[in-house]
Simulated assay, not measured.
Amino acid sequence: MKKVIAILVVVLGFAFNTNAQDKMIKTPVKTVSLEQTNGEFTQKQITLSEGTYIFEIANNNVGHNVGFVLAPKADVKAHIKNAYVTAQVENNTKGNSKEVVLKKGEYVYFCPLNPTPQYTLIVE
């Protein structure tokens, strides 16, 4: 019985340490910087590789607050909420989204506050 308990403790301890190490290895986060001017983004199309991203949105003299929406092209109403800027971006400042994991596919990005057209983001 003691051998079974000792083996169980060793196995559980190994599993715990492996999980802790896995959590310490984090995928690199890349920043995508986008600029909005009055009624448009200056970047009309973006191509990225799969990965984790933060979107940095610059409000370049739009004259009022702006935001950011990212959605799958197949369902534009299915906004990716982590891609929203954490607060509306005031005139002549920058704001950031939370981390967003992007998989292969086509997306659209736009700003309903500016408002802008929908632009294409492709993940390869």
Rank of each mutant, 00 (worst) to 15 (best):
K23W: 07
Q21H: 03
E35F: 00
G51K: 07
F16W: 15
L70W: 03
T52H: 11
L102N: 08
T31W: 06
P28I: 03
A83L: 09
E106Q: 11
E35H: 05
E40N: 08
I57Q: 07
A87L: 04
F16E: 01
M24C: 08
V100L: 03
I7V: 13
F55A: 06
Q43I: 03
T27N: 10
H64G: 07
K104R: 06
Y53V: 05
H64F: 09
K77A: 14
V123L: 03
T93N: 11
V29S: 06
Y84R: 11
A15S: 12
V32A: 09
K30E: 11
F41I: 00
P112S: 13
G63I: 01
T47K: 15
V9A: 10
Q118E: 13
T27S: 05
I25S: 04
T52G: 04
A74E: 14
I7W: 09
K23C: 10
G39D: 00
V11A: 10
Y109G: 06
K73T: 04
Y84I: 08
V108R: 01
V32S: 12
E106F: 02
E99W: 03
E40C: 01
Q21R: 09
G51N: 11
K26W: 05
N65A: 07
P72L: 06
V69H: 12
S97K: 04
L113D: 13
V76A: 15
L70G: 02
P117H: 02
K77V: 03
I46Y: 05
V29D: 02
A6H: 02
T47A: 12
L12M: 13
K73Y: 10
L70M: 05
H79R: 13
P28M: 03
L113V: 04
P112T: 08
K98T: 06
Q43H: 08
V101S: 12
E40F: 01
E50V: 10
I54M: 15
T47S: 15
T18E: 01
N96R: 11
S49D: 14
Y53K: 07
N92E: 14
T42V: 14
E99F: 04
A58K: 15
K98M: 10
A78V: 00
E35M: 06
I54P: 05
L48Y: 11
I5C: 05
V66T: 13
N61E: 08
S33T: 12
A74T: 14
K44Y: 05
T52M: 13
T37K: 12
V10Y: 08
L113Q: 09
E35W: 06
D22N: 14
A71T: 07
T42I: 15
N38Q: 03
Y84D: 14
K73Q: 10
Q43G: 02
N59K: 10
L34V: 07
T116G: 00
E90Q: 14
I54K: 15
